[in-house]
Amino acid sequence: MRKLVVIMLSIVFMLALTGCGTGPGGGTGEQAGQTLTVGLMPDVDSIPFIIAQEKGFFKEEGVNVTLKSFKSAVDRDSALQSGNLDGAISDVLAEAFAKDGGFDTVITSATTGNYKLVAGKGEAVTALQDLKGKDVAISKNTIIEYVTDTIGTKGGLAADDMNKVIVPQIPARLEMLQNGKIAAATLPDPLATLAVKSGARLVSSSEQLGINPGVMLFTNKATEAKAKEIAAMYRAYNKAIEYLAKEPRDSYIDLVIEKAGFPAVVKDSLELPQYKKAAAPVPADVEAVIAWLQQKQLIQKGYSYEELVNDRFVR
């Protein structure tokens, strides 16, 4: 009997040790098994996530990440607010709208994208002033409209000097531009690059203006319940940034085009930004967006940087 008791106690002890062990990337076995579901947009901000997935960096860090692609900000935000996403590539505007609507999300890092205002190849547009009174396709109350207005303001045009045509889906916006149905459009890369390759003219860009309102959002629920997974995701993301910095473009460009769903014709002309490791957004970028939203009376209060940003995962 005593021998049986000793054996049973030994088994219990071993099980307890197993339960306390840590999984890959520092998470416990149970926590490492939780999946992060992240929303992507058809732009270059998504590329580090695709690289991290396809090169096994997420797996190395012990985190399961499911990537879901969206063609419009509206669809992405609906998925986030309905609980189908833990986080998403997004922008400061979306975070402010979420806060204003009582939906609990938080900015966890900046992203590295570029948004370009391009004029159609059939348009006699050589400068921003030439777009006065002409149709410009945007998505309303998004980073696209913010960049368009900022380009206009810095170039001497009022917000209503350009006739904004609302086209939420990014591929549809590009198609309208290429078919001459609109004079210009604001697009993210790589579709902006594709437009220029097809004969459109670059008018201005967020990069030229030195603004970067793109961010990564997570729900507050995810930051609490899946904190270790988010931290592991960012470690894998940073590995992807290192990979993109040192690897020849030819070694990953076909993979990126396939997985991101980019048109194959952008292969030779795709311009990648100088990606940076995950970091908090610059306060001035956040504050400028909030000022724009308040000026347009799109939010009820002026949110502070601290109310919108939680940088604990990227310190």
Results as ranks from 00 to 15, higher is better:
113 G>L: 03
116 K>I: 14
111 T>P: 05
134 K>Q: 13
61 E>L: 08
121 K>V: 04
135 D>S: 13
105 T>Y: 03
57 F>W: 06
63 V>R: 05
116 K>T: 13
128 L>G: 02
123 E>L: 09
63 V>G: 01
39 G>D: 01
89 I>C: 07
73 A>H: 12
73 A>C: 10
56 G>L: 05
73 A>S: 13
136 V>E: 05
104 D>S: 13
101 G>M: 00
139 S>H: 13
119 A>T: 09
101 G>L: 01
100 D>N: 15
49 F>W: 14
114 N>T: 12
141 N>M: 12
48 P>F: 08
68 K>T: 12
57 F>M: 06
31 Q>W: 09
119 A>S: 15
64 N>G: 01
82 S>H: 05
99 K>S: 11
99 K>N: 10
116 K>M: 14
63 V>L: 03
71 K>T: 12
124 A>T: 11
84 N>K: 15
98 A>F: 09
127 A>H: 12
110 A>H: 03
28 T>I: 10
43 D>Q: 11
108 T>E: 06
52 A>H: 05
51 I>V: 15
124 A>K: 14
100 D>H: 09
103 F>H: 05
126 T>Y: 08
105 T>C: 05
113 G>D: 03
86 D>H: 09
128 L>D: 02
79 A>G: 06
96 A>N: 09
83 G>W: 06
102 G>Q: 00
97 F>W: 12
109 S>C: 05
52 A>Q: 06
35 T>M: 15
57 F>C: 07
77 D>R: 14
45 D>Q: 13
52 A>C: 08
95 E>F: 09
27 G>M: 15
104 D>R: 08
129 Q>H: 12
121 K>P: 01
144 I>G: 14
92 V>W: 05
52 A>M: 08
67 L>Y: 01
46 S>E: 03
29 G>W: 14
78 S>I: 13
129 Q>A: 15
81 Q>A: 13
140 K>V: 10
76 R>G: 07
58 F>N: 03
58 F>G: 01
97 F>T: 10
60 E>D: 15
108 T>P: 01
73 A>K: 10
80 L>A: 04
57 F>D: 04
111 T>M: 09
109 S>N: 11
35 T>F: 07
30 E>S: 10
145 E>L: 07
119 A>E: 05
62 G>S: 02
26 G>C: 04
114 N>V: 13
85 L>R: 00
62 G>C: 04
118 V>A: 11
26 G>P: 02
107 I>L: 00
134 K>P: 06
